[in-house]
Each structure stands twice: as structure tokens, then as C-alpha cells.
């Protein structure tokens, strides 16, 4: 019976990694679609919406079933708790991908204010954080989440720099407001995804070590004065 539980738990964790890859993919592709104004790709992402929601639900149900039947303890319990938290964060990341895809479709008929550089760069940073959190989860090794606090701060800074850049464009030319407002939202979504990566890393740290850690301690907020 115990072996059966451990096999099921392994399967569950593999499902979480698959869900993680899908969420990562949705976010990555959404920014690519935005940058290249690729509406086909954006629509493809919208189609993934149900898939990730189904995964979220399926993993949750499987996890609750295991909790009920086996009442795991110690590390087993921590793995189950981490799985249940991770899927919520991953579902949100996927949904932000969907939101960015929607923005892509909204902005499709107009050129970008300028070539998008900061947003794809920020997306790359966030994606690598999600990736490292998932790797830590998969390998049960917290090494890859070292330095998450600084990386999260960096993502926050990027968001504010995009915010300031957009304000400048908007003040210069009111015709850019509609587009820039969307860019600011995208930066906000990406920053939230970074936060989710940090929360996942904290849960993985708990899963592996049994200790709670705060990877995003309160500190000075980036200067957003104009």
C-alpha cells in the first residue's frame, strides 16, 4: 500500500511538471506573439486555456484522493501540500499567458509604439525563474532557487522601468496611450508571474527542507517618480 502511494505521488509530481511546462509555454509564446504580432500564435494560446484548467482540476482531485486514502506524513505530506499550492500558481501563470494573448489580438491592427525590447527581456527573466522553480521541484534540490530574492527585485525594477518608459511615450503623444496602457498591463502580468515563481520556490524549499523561508522580504519599493 505504501509503495502504491509513493508510485501515485511520483505520478502526481510528473503531472505538475507537465502542467508547469504548459504554463511556461503559454507565457513564453504569448510574449513572442505580442512582439511579432502573431495572431495565429495568440489564438493557439487561447486554446490552451481549457487544457491548463483541466490539469489544475485533475491534479487537485488526484491529490485530494491520495490525502484521503493514505494520510501522508512528514516529507510525503509536504510534497502533497506543495503540489496543491504549485498548481494554483501555475494555473495563474498560464492565465496571464492567455491575458497577454488577448492583448496581442487587441493590438494586432496597430504597429507597436516601437520595437518591443524590455517586455521580451523581462519575460525571459521571469521564464527562467519559473523554470528554476520547476527544476527545484522536479529534482527536490533547492540549489537552483538560490538568488531568487535578487532576481525578483530585478523583475520589479524592470516593471517600473517599462512603466516609466510608457509614461514618457504617452505624454509625448496621446495616440500611444491605448497601446502603452496595454504594455504596462503586460509588464504587471509578468511581474505577477515572477511573484508566483518566488512563491513556488518558497513551497519547494519547504517541501525539501521542512523549513519555511521568505524569499520576498519587504524592502524599499523601486523609485517610480517621474
Amino acid at each position: 500500500m505504501v509503495e502504491e502511494f509513493h508510485n501515485e505521488l511520483e505520478k502526481l509530481k510528473k503531472q505538475v511538471v507537465r502542467m508547469g511546462n504548459l504554463a511556461q509555454d503559454m507565457l513564453k509564446k504569448s510574449v513572442k506573439a505580442l512582439k511579432e504580432k502573431d495572431t495565429d500564435l495568440a489564438k493557439e494560446i487561447l486554446n490552451c486555456k481549457n487544457e491548463i484548467a483541466n490539469m489544475d482540476e485533475k491534479i487537485e482531485q488526484d491529490a485530494l484522493k491520495l490525502l484521503t486514502l493514505f494520510q501522508p506524513m512528514a516529507k510525503d505530506m509536504r510534497e502533497m501540500a506543495t503540489v496543491l499550492k504549485m498548481i494554483t500558481y501555475l494555473a495563474r501563470i498560464g492565465r496571464y499567458g492567455k491575458d497577454i494573448a488577448n492583448i496581442t489580438l487587441e493590438l494586432a491592427h496597430k504597429p507597436h509604439v516601437k520595437e518591443l525590447v524590455s517586455i521580451p527581456y523581462m519575460a525571459k527573466e521571469v521564464d527562467s525563474m519559473i523554470n528554476d522553480a520547476l527544476t527545484a521541484f522536479e529534482n527536490e534540490d533547492v540549489e537552483s532557487i538560490d538568488g531568487f530574492t535578487a532576481r525578483e527585485k530585478n523583475v520589479d525594477e524592470l516593471r517600473y522601468s517599462i512603466f516609466r518608459e510608457c509614461l514618457t511615450y504617452m505624454m509625448e503623444d496621446s495616440k500611444t496611450i491605448k497601446r502603452c496602457a496595454r504594455y504596462i498591463m503586460v509588464a504587471r502580468y509578468l511581474e505577477r508571474c515572477g511573484d508566483h515563481a518566488v512563491k513556488m520556490a518558497e513551497k519547494v524549499f519547504y517541501m525539501v527542507t521542512g523549513d519555511h523561508i521568505d524569499l520576498d522580504p519587504p524592502g524599499p519599493t523601486p523609485d517610480c517618480e517621474l
Binding site: V2, F5, H6, P72, M73, A74, K75, D76, M77, R78, T209, G210, D211
Partner: peptide, 17 residues
């Protein structure tokens, strides 16, 4: 003990490994 045992032997016993 049941959330975060410090000894590997305890962990193994509690999780049935």
C-alpha cells in the same frame, strides 16, 4: 516530528519507507 522529522530514520518510519 510528523511535519519535519530531523532524523532520517524517523522520516523513513513515518512515511512507510
Amino acid at each position: 516530528i510528523f511535519e519535519n522529522p530531523q532524523e532520517e530514520l524517523t522520516e523513513k518510519y513515518i512515511t512507510g519507507r
